[in-house]
């Protein structure tokens, strides 16, 4: 497997009312293609900030970030936006669907920001991923007409529509009941099996347990980086079942 993401001594500092807060403190990290990484830690430890940096929603104060072999920490806003529209998929805790757009339109959104795609291509792709998350039958509904679990499945579809190199999920099950949370986690596992790279922020130890690799943060630093034995076993079992 090749390395998809490399962080070298990346820090992020916020300045509020002349008080400097270092949210990320010289983190170095590599994520390989096809990995399913769970990022956990206490509240305020910098998980979401790290995810924002990985998703190019923010830029690091110091250090270097390389995505798919390209240094992205010094890119302009528009260059970062272009990478987000083509190579990154986001899933948020609070779904973040646009209420004025239908389910289909929400899913189409990342592709509308790419140039050279026809409306038909965009619609076909969006319909395909909606079918994949079993939300095709609700494509003309508005987000407010869906349950929380359905909204999150739509959000996952939106994250998948641009065939991203990595899916970044920030507490994707945080706003869901256990049944819907389980469905979303199973969806992630399926995507992982299909080769997707996923980085998920989670509080929940059980959810973190289902990833292939587990990172733990404390006070802006990575304090633990371990392969997840249970997930490895599960994967082996899945392969055994597939081979028969």
């Amino acid at each position: 497997m090749s390395v998809l993401i490399t962080l070298e001594k990346v820090s992020k500092t916020f300045l509020t009312d002349e008080i400097e807060t270092r949210a990320i403190n010289e983190i170095s990290l590599a994520i390989e293609q096809g990995e399913y990484v769970a990022l956990s830690g206490q509240s305020g430890c910098g998980k979401s900030t790290l995810l924002s940096l990985l998703g190019l929603l923010d830029s690091p104060s110091t250090g270097q970030y390389t995505l798919a072999g390209k240094v992205v920490s010094t890119l302009t806003r528009n260059q970062r936006a272009e990478i987000r529209s083509k190579e990154i998929g986001f899933v948020f805790q609070s779904f973040n669907l646009i209420s004025d757009l239908t389910v289909l339109e929400n899913v189409m959104l990342p592709l509308t920001y790419q140039s050279g795609l026809t409306k038909k291509v965009i619609e076909d792709k969006a319909n395909a991923v909606l079918e994949k998350v079993q939300m095709g039958h609700r494509k003309n509904h508005f987000p407010s007409q869906l349950s929380g679990g359905q909204q999150q499945r739509v959000a996952v579809a939106r994250a998948l529509v641009n065939d991203p190199k990595i899916i970044l999920a920030d507490e994707p099950t945080g706003n869901l009941d256990s049944t819907n949370a389980e469905a979303v986690l199973q969806l992630f596992e399926q995507l992982h099996r299909e080769g997707a790279t996923i980085c998920m922020v989670t509080h929940d130890a059980a959810s973190a347990q289902r990833a292939s690799r587990r990172l733990e943060m404390f006070d802006g630093r990575l304090i633990k980086d371990s392969a997840n034995q249970q997930q490895t076993t599960n994967n082996v079992q899945a392969i055994d079942v597939a081979v028969g």
Partner: peptide, 16 residues
């Protein structure tokens, strides 16, 4: 603003 954030997250440029 929040909607702008979502659009930006999925790749909208400043111009868009």
């Amino acid at each position: 603003t929040h909607e702008v954030g979502i659009r930006r997250a999925v790749g909208a440029t400043d111009q868009a």
